[in-house]
Design a protein around this nucleic acid. Structure first.
Length: 730
RNA sequence: GCACCCUUAGCUUAGUGGUAAAGCGUUACAUUGACAUUGUAAAGACCGUAGGUUCGAUCCCUACAGGGUGCACCA
């Protein structure tokens, strides 16, 4: 492969050819790397598990940042002689993918229910085959040197087997249970969500003050408790009024009862520490069925739970005359009714946060639902311990606090989802006793289901029926939490687990990193990596979040296409210090200019040291002038600094330092000086040697950051020892 | 509401207990000699505001303002 030095550097002409050459070499696969180089008699592995991109995804700036950082490390350690594995994969991304295919169906005027589960899943697979590889191709364009021969998908048969086994394992250890709980429910997606899948949005609403008559004191106008609420429609499901035990205003009322307006029921007044006496009237209506906090209060006080809203977000039969209404309609009707009965004390405008689904943006409706939970206390404890002890290191350090906060206050993880696309639970129900599947909690002893990684041949309950698998699927994060080992074959686990490093944005620190850590500890006995690196978020130049829907997104592929992958990588790394990055396009231009500088300097060195004038093999580094000495000492210093910066993940510093060395010390100073030196017969050979040596060393150091151009130049230098710069000894 | 982070040249950001760097931009000059995707030089910052510690603070402490993030949601 020969690049044309007579023209300015053209990444388009070069990059795809170079990448193909690397692919053909097979060196992305560590098993193909030369087994024992002289400097590493027993090469150690260096492993990174790629943060799984969603199959629905296309490359965005966040990926570019994650993966450029990982590729720098992988390429660096590969040149250092390590057996480097960068394990790539894609995530089936339950909700995201299902939502996407459903949208496609909607355009055709079909719903997934009309299609049926089996056909729908077929359709998703088809979609995956067609579009699921896009992001992989895009990562290749970026120059990612991952081992594509090991590419995994989280729904691959082997992977799925591990996922189901993990479920069975937890269940046998009594860490998984099934229960009827008030959970966060998205009426549009039709599924439960975990607390980490929620977002909050400010909304202008109202606070209604409602009078609840104290039941045993007759219905006189002064004898009532006033509760404040933003959701009056849920009062039909109230089963108590709660006050703070230290609140003197209500001390005498605790233990008494009130008559619940609009519903012919009497409910108790209970005392609970969670109630803030300073808010509203200090008295709160308690609706265990439709509020997570109220559910917990209900548990503490053994209150019944009355569901009045169904999974589509409509009032159900328990709501009496309001049944069938949407919650907003019911709210309006109920407020009007209360007002007409003189039970509405006042209404004030109020801005509060509503909880929305992180995927579709629909308002979350907490409803009681039969779900599966993973007990978190022990697992969280192990994940805490491994970071506290320094076995796993989270950088920058202040993110440790976020990690600790979450794990210390953790709730059990709702792992079941009412979706079709995903790993179906390895739970099999007896058909005879299956009527209670969604409504009645089953204890482990008196249950009507079996947890097993394969369907039992005969039903252990009735001995006759063909057992029916639970329709629920697992939370996607349950399966991606297993990625560091489920992505590896049995034999690979011996060589390539645990890994060394993971890099991602802060939003998945708990969602994913924490869960990979405790899963690794649970199933492999060791955490999956030593270093978690949380990088900044790339924002627009004026500090706004990048988002497709807002039109503020910036496509890294646009830059790769226009200015080359190296220039794009340069820009990403150049700006990536610990803080969030206000993306400045000028950095890409700077990267492109730097590429050109490398290109032209290389041409110069090549011309100066063409074999007709110069025999490299016979020359030794023999500095003769001050300039010679200075460039060689600066080179040695730069090399040391580069190693240090890369190994501490300070990529921006490493690159800036290299940039400064190459441009100013090498090009501006030494190259200019060398022009004079080569005119002197005595100095020519040593000058040529130093030129060539410094260039090659620079190319090596720059290679992890800008792999394409450095490899292209190296190929033109016709070095003899290694075929590729990529595998040249550092 | 609680916690954490940020605020440095026109823009995007480094950085240090002794008044500050880089990229882009600007200005002047040079140069077709690897590279005009160039070189040399210059201008440009009271380092968010107000206090405090210190011989001395942009860097440490406190408060405030603006921006951001995490957690909790207050019903």
């Amino acid at each position: 492969m020969n690049a044309d030095f007579s023209k300015p550097y053209d990444p388009k002409e070069t990059e795809s050819g170079i990448y193909q050459m690397w692919l053909d070499s097979g060196y992305f696969n560590p098993d193909n790397l030369p087994a024992a180089k002289p400097h590493t008699p027993h090469p150690k592995p260096y492993v990174i598990y790629m943060p799984l991109p969603n199959v629905t995804g296309t490359l965005h700036m966040g990926h570019a940042l994650d993966n450029t950082g990982s590729d720098i490390l992988i390429r660096y350690y590969r040149m250092k002689g390590f057996r480097t594995l960068w394990l790539p994969g894609t995530d089936h991304a339950g909700i995201a993918t299902q939502y996407k295919v459903e949208k496609e169906l909607r355009k055709e005027g079909v719903s997934r229910f009309e299609l049926g589960r089996e056909k729908f899943i077929e359709r998703v697979w088809k979609w995956k085959e067609e579009y699921g590889g896009i992001i992989i191709d895009q990562l290749k364009k970026l120059g990612a040197s991952a081992d594509w021969s090991r590419l995994r998908f989280t729904m691959d048969p082997d992977y799925a087997k591990d996922v189901l086994q993990a479920f069975v394992h937890y269940y046998k250890k009594d860490l998984i249970y099934r229960g009827l709980r008030t959970v966060n429910w998205c009426p549009r997606c039709g599924t439960s969500l975990s607390e980490l899948e929620l977002e909050h949005q400010e909304e202008k609403g109202a606070l209604w003050y409602i009078r609840y008559p104290i039941s045993n004191e007759g219905f006189q106008i002064s004898n009532y408790v006033v509760v404040a609420t933003t959701r009056p429609e849920t009062m039909l499901g109230d089963t108590a009024v709660a006050v703070n035990p230290n609140d003197k205003r209500y001390a005498k009322l605790v233990g008494k009862t009130v008559r619940l307006p609009l519903a012919d029921r009497t409910i108790p007044i209970v005392a609970d520490m969670k109630i803030d006496p300073g808010f509203g009237t200090g008295a709160v209506k308690v609706t265990p069925a439709h509020d997570i906090l109220d559910f917990e209060i209900g548990q503490r006080h053994k209150l019944p739970s009355i569901q009045i809203i169904d999974e589509r977000g409509k009032m159900n039969a328990n709501a009496g005359s309001y049944a069938g209404m949407k919650t907003e309609e019911a709210r309006k009707a109920i407020v009007e009714r209360l007002a007409s009965e003189g039970l509405l004390e006042k209404e004030e405008p109020y801005v509060h946060n509503v909880t929305i689904c992180y995927r579709c943006g629909h308002v979350i409706e907490p409803i009681p639902s039969m779900q599966w939970f993973l007990k978190m206390d022990k697992l969280a404890h192990s994940a805490l311990k491994t970071v506290r002890s320094g076995t796993v290191n989270i950088q920058p350090e202040n993110f440790q606090k976020i990690y600790f906060d979450w794990l210390e206050n953790i709730r059990d993880w709702t792992i079941s989802r009412q979706l079709w696309w995903g790993h179906q639970l390895p739970v099999y129900f007896c058909k005879q006793a299956a009527n209670d599947k969604f409504q009645v909690p089953s204890s482990k002893n008196g249950n009507n289901f079996v947890v097993a990684s394969e369907k039992p041949k005969t039903c252990p309950f009735c001995g006759a029926c063909d057992m029916e698998q639970s329709p629920d699927v697992l939370d996607t994060w349950f399966s991606s939490a297993l990625w560091p080992f489920a992505g590896l074959s049995e034999s690979d686990r011996k060589n390539y687990y645990p890994g060394n490093f993971v890099s991602n944005a802060r939003d998945i620190l708990n969602l994913w990193d924490a869960r990979m850590i405790f899963s690794g500890l649970e199933f492999m006995g060791k955490p999956p990596f030593q270093n978690v690196f949380v990088h900044g978020t790339i924002l627009t130049k004026d500090g706004k979040r990048m988002s497709k829907s807002l039109g503020t997104g910036i496509d890294p592929l646009k830059y790769i296409d226009q200015y080359g992958a190296d220039a794009t990588r340069f820009a990403v790394v150049w700006q990536a210090n610990g803080q969030d990055i206000r993306w400045d396009e000028a950095a890409v231009m700077a990267g492109r200019k730097f590429c050109n500088k490398i290109w032209n300097a290389s041409r110069f060195v090549l011309e100066q040291t063409a074999t007709s004038k110069f025999e490299i093999r016979n020359s030794k580094l023999a500095p003769q002038t001050e300039a010679d000495k200075e460039i060689l000492s600066k080179l040695a210093e730069t090399k040391k600094q580069t190693e240090q910066y890369i190994e501490t993940f300070e990529f921006a510093k490493a690159l800036q330092n290299l940039y400064d060395f190459f441009w100013h010390n090498f090009c501006d100073t030494y190259l200019e000086e060398s022009k004079k030196q080569v005119t002197d017969e005595k100095m020519r050979p040593s000058t040529q040697t130093i030129l060539r040596n410094t260039l090659i060393e620079s190319l090596k150091m720059l290679h992890p950051f800008m792999p394409f151009i450095t490899e292209a130049v190296y190929q033109n230098l016709n070095e003899q020892s290694d075929r590729f710069l990529m595998t040249t000894e550092w």
